[in-house]
Nucleic acid binder design. Structure first.
Lengths: 264, 264
DNA sequence: AGAAAACCTTGACGCGCGTCAACCTTGTTG
DNA sequence: CAACAAGGTTGACGCGCGTCAAGGTTTTCT
């Protein structure tokens, strides 16, 4: 996004001109390859808050790269309890995990107005054959997702509610930092209920603990706005597994953002 | 395993002669490709119960295919709480999720005497280029792991202890069924404490609920042996997300087994 | 603008399950 | 075979957090 020019509809922008190419599938490709990749990517589709990108059981026809906005993915029990498995932001690729069964096994819903690029599944074979780096990048993307899921299982299996919230806020903070947004002040695009569902705790518990953090001067939070006042203390509450060696790779303009709505 | 012949050390067996090739990396390859793949696979390494296959932070040099025995993988908080993220059995490929960071982000420990094939990471590039189907198979393997992790997050985030145990037993049962072992009678290779760590509940709770299931006539369990007496009831306790359409693909000899020790 | 819906917050209450402890059984080792 | 270690089981107790409820605030829709 944030190309300098032309049509109000940015649909025409090519991969090599997209501000996200350093985060997205083209990452690591040389420019000739990027041009080639561009041939296979269809842009774009825009969906509104609450609309579905895909649902469970649906034929796996496209993978989606998020250009702006944000998306939640979730799985459910048959009696309707829903577990949010991830929040996804610009530059991230969605839906690859349907490869195995050829149909989607989770559902993806927009948290706000969101625009995505579609990549047809039929292209993947061709694509990976013509551009070996794409193959590698697909593996990296899935590998990263597995790592995230493992951290999340650790959180869900072994941490109490306070640790979960602290971990959550710090993870968000780092994701913002990596995109050169303020790591200490941001807007959430997801509701308290979404946060609770993601962290495996009740909505009310989310509220209560945010309130407690605020009383203790660790954060300021009002509705969707969050300001981290004492990151160090937050870290000691979270008791993280890794020593938080977040390599901050400056990519984009500094500023502070909503949960990346129209951010890039 | 279970080749009919030769050396007591089965190290010499080739991929195309391995009883597991329908489950493992070679799945879907034609026989010429399998011969080629065979060139890259080093077999074998044997580790004893409690020994590590790899540890967190270790350089990612090999992926491992399990030939016999079983392995648990886990991640930990810095203060030592450990979450088991999976139990792995013959035919499964381990360690691929280290691709992204080039070092292992979980640890793998043998639950019993276990033998594995090593596949050098340096081969992957070459391999995937020469045999496109390997590329696809790697994606499928990771995709399957992500799907498993999602189900596990649902379990950890939304299910109570009883549902967790019931889900666990049924999942085991299906894995055995898929390998033509008895789905209603099997031995576990993991301790109660491991089960608890995997399911996000205390060891004592595992015992108590198994005892309760037994009182209710749903199972019989004594130490590591489990017999499922009422699978239907177990299913209704578990309240699963999918209608349990386990495609049972008969692969191997019928029998009943320990948690796959030397099973195949 | 007004109504309705969605979202957020706070309080009261109770139960599911973690924790601690004691004891038993099985496997391991010198 | 004795001694120990590891694993498994059961009971007692209490607290963290889910659930229910009520009310406030913001956003969406007509």
């Amino acid at each position: 996004m944030r190309q300098t020019v032309q049509k109000p509809d940015c649909a025409a922008i090519a991969c090599q001109d997209c501000g996200l190419y350093q985060l997205c599938l083209p990452m690591g490709l040389n420019s000739a390859d990027t041009v080639l990749l561009d041939h296979y990517v269809k842009r774009k589709r825009t969906i509104k808050r609450g609309q579905m990108l895909y649902r469970v059981g649906e034929q796996f026809s496209y993978a989606y790269a998020i250009r702006s906005g944000s998306v939640k993915t979730s799985v459910s029990t048959e009696d309707g309890r829903q577990q949010i498995t991830g929040f996804h932001i610009p530059g991230e690729l969605l839906g690859l995990n349907a490869i195995d069964e050829n149909r989607h096994n989770c559902e993806a819903v927009a948290l706000e107005t969101t625009s995505v690029c579609e990549i047809s599944v039929n292209c993947f074979d061709e694509l990976a054959r013509q551009i070996p780096a794409v193959h590698f990048q697909m593996l990296r993307i899935m590998s990263k997702e597995i790592r995230h899921n493992q951290e999340q299982m650790l959180l869900l299996g072994k941490k109490n509610a306070e640790e979960r919230l602290a971990t959550y806020l710090l993870t968000l903070s780092r994701r913002f930092a990596m995109r050169n947004y303020s790591p200490t002040q941001f807007n959430l695009s997801m509701s308290r209920s979404d946060i609770g569902s993601y962290l495996g705790i009740a909505e009310e518990t989310v509220c209560r603990i945010l309130a407690r953090f605020q009383e203790e001067g660790v954060i300021v939070s009002e509705r969707r706005l969050v300001v981290l006042k004492d990151v160090k203390r937050l870290g000691s509450i979270a008791r993280e597994s890794r020593p938080a060696t977040a390599r901050v790779i400056p990519l984009l303009r500094p500023s502070h953002a909503t949960f990346l709505n129209g951010a890039l």
